[in-house]
Amino acid sequence: MDSPSRPDGDARTRRGPDAGGLVLLLLPALAVVWVLFGGGLALGLVQALGYLPVAGLGELSWGHFARVLTDPDFIRSLLLTFYIAGTSTSIAAGISILTALLLASLVERSRVIHFMFQVPLTVPHLVIAVAAVFMLAPAGLFSRAAVALGWIQTSADFPLLINDTWGVGIILTYVWKEVPFITMMILAVLRQSGNALLDVGRTLKASPWQRFRYITLPTIFPAVGAASLIVFAYTFGAFEVPFLLGRTYPMTLPVWAYKNYSDIDLLARPEGIATGIVIALVVMLAVVLAQMLTKAARKRGVIL
């Protein structure tokens, strides 16, 4: 029945390249990425180790790393960065879980809601940071609105949300930006396997709270975890938002690295790069952890 001499038919039925073939096809692109990223990192490392002939530095040493790591300002920056990334990620994750549950139960297939959630995903952080300045600053939109509504006397009574000690402006900006991302990740998992398992839970006599605690949470845990780690990695290494909305002291690590790197004193440069490498390490660790969670989820049959 089957005629072997039908090349067009064969081509149509041929399956896609296997994993090995795929790697081969992607090799050129991968090479560019690795050379640029890995090469940049290696160059940076060499400079951080003190090889900067222009500045008269010629010997390799861990001295710059040591100096950076023991600098009390570095420690303060590190803690501040962890605080901002950790807090904004936790708040965003919490809000995202609630939002995703609400959306999953309310609208099964609402395109409008979907669209509304995709918009913030595409807006650059810089734009949001600028918008945050306009809205949250002491003379900003919210402050004036509060005065107009009679909630506060003058705009001087408006709480300091920008360039403030607790990084409220930065955290709010990150939360606003990251909630849609984490929410979408959770929603995807809930759509895949959520409702059927909840029906199982109901017929096995689990109360609404028990279904949330013992079915929904474990179901979405890998998605929440992976998405949060990615967001954490991003906020940990992001520069523009704390640069615009943060205080001049202490700075977050990326801002500190940038300041050092672009200092007119070329001697500060290796320290800037050393800081950058510390950031890169934390970011990579978070990404690796996210990858592990995704893998674990795939084992259970959930594709993130």
Partner: peptide, 26 residues
């Protein structure tokens, strides 16, 4: 009344005995 579904729909984050004991724990 307890229903067994067309697909097994086991909880993927639990092992066999945890799955079986689910209802009792609840």
């Amino acid at each position: 009344a307890v229903m067994v579904f067309q697909k097994p729909l086991l909880f993927p984050f639990m092992n066999v005995s945890q799955n079986i004991g689910f209802g009792l724990r609840m």
